[in-house]
C-alpha cells in the first residue's frame, strides 16, 4: 500500500486566480449535474410519493373513491386546501362513490426506537373508532421493531380502536394506552412481545394525535360531510 502514503508533488508557486478558476469550474460542473438530475427525477419522486400516500390512505379507509385535503384555520375550522399544498398539517377526508364521508385520515409522527416514525390512521366518525393504521416511514430494527409494520396481531389492534368522545365533545372518554398481553378494552393497544419500545412509540403518537384531532374532526363533521358533494 505504498500508493496511499505519498501525496502528489505540489508546485510551489501558483497564483490564486488559477485556484479560483479550478474550483469554480469544478463547482460549475457539479452544479449543472445536480440541477439536471433534480429536474429529471423530481416529477418521478413526486409521483411516487403521491401514489404511495394515496394507496396508503385507501388501505386505511376502505371503500374510498376520492379524497379531499383540509387544514384547520385559526378558529379551529377545517378549510379545504390544494392536494399538493406545502401545509404540513393535513387532514384527509375520504368519500365513496355516493359522495358519502367514509372516514378521515390523519398523519402522526414521533420518535421511535431508532429514528422518527411517520404513520397515518383512519377514523370512522360513525363508529367513533380508529379503523386502520399504516406506518409510512420507519427505520426500526428489521425483524424486531419493524413488526409494527408487519405483525398482523399488532395491526389488528387498529381495526377497531375506541376513541369515542365524552359529553363535552372536547376529550376522549378513555385515553389510548399500551398493555402487555391481550387487550381487555377497545381503547387499549396490545404490545408486541420483544418490541415494546416501538409499540410504545406508536401508541404514544396515536394517543397524542387522537386527543387533539378527534375533537377537531368531530366539531367539523358537518363541513367535511358537505364538502363531499361539491
Amino acid at each position: 500500500m505504498s500508493e496511499t502514503t505519498q501525496a502528489p508533488v505540489e508546485t510551489p508557486q501558483i497564483n490564486s486566480s488559477r485556484l479560483l478558476m479550478a474550483m469554480g469550474s469544478v463547482g460549475f460542473i457539479a452544479g449543472i449535474l445536480i440541477v439536471f438530475t433534480f429536474q429529471f427525477t423530481l416529477p418521478i419522486i413526486k409521483a411516487n410519493e403521491k401514489a404511495y400516500l394515496d394507496q396508503s390512505i385507501f388501505e386505511v379507509v376502505p371503500n374510498t373513491a376520492y379524497k379531499k385535503v383540509f387544514t384547520p384555520d385559526k378558529n379551529g375550522v377545517l378549510t379545504p386546501i390544494a392536494e399538493d399544498s406545502e401545509e404540513p398539517y393535513k387532514i384527509f377526508a375520504c368519500y365513496d362513490k355516493e359522495h358519502k364521508l367514509t372516514g378521515v385520515v390523519v398523519e402522526a409522527s414521533g420518535q421511535g426506537f431508532q429514528d422518527v416514525i411517520r404513520l397515518i390512521y383512519g377514523y370512522d366518525p360513525q363508529k367513533q373508532a380508529v379503523i386502520g393504521m399504516k406506518v409510512l416511514q420507519s427505520t426500526e430494527t428489521p425483524g424486531l421493531g419493524d413488526k409494527i409494520i408487519t405483525d398482523a396481531k399488532f395491526l389488528s389492534n387498529f381495526a377497531h380502536l375506541d376513541v369515542s368522545l365524552d359529553e363535552s365533545g372536547e376529550r376522549l372518554k378513555a385515553p389510548i394506552t399500551l398493555i402487555k398481553g391481550p387487550r381487555e378494552n377497545d381503547h387499549q393497544i396490545s404490545a408486541i412481545t420483544g418490541a415494546t419500545i416501538s409499540s410504545r412509540a406508536v401508541t404514544r403518537m396515536i394517543a397524542r394525535s387522537t386527543a387533539i384531532n378527534i375533537p377537531l374532526i368531530y366539531k367539523n363533521l358537518k363541513v367535511l360531510e358537505e364538502a363531499g358533494n361539491e
Partner: peptide, 13 residues
C-alpha cells in the same frame, strides 16, 4: 487541471 493546494476540496465537491 486541479492544483495540488485545493485538490481535497475539489475531490469532496
Amino acid at each position: 487541471l486541479i492544483p495540488g493546494q485545493v485538490r481535497i476540496a475539489t475531490y469532496i465537491l
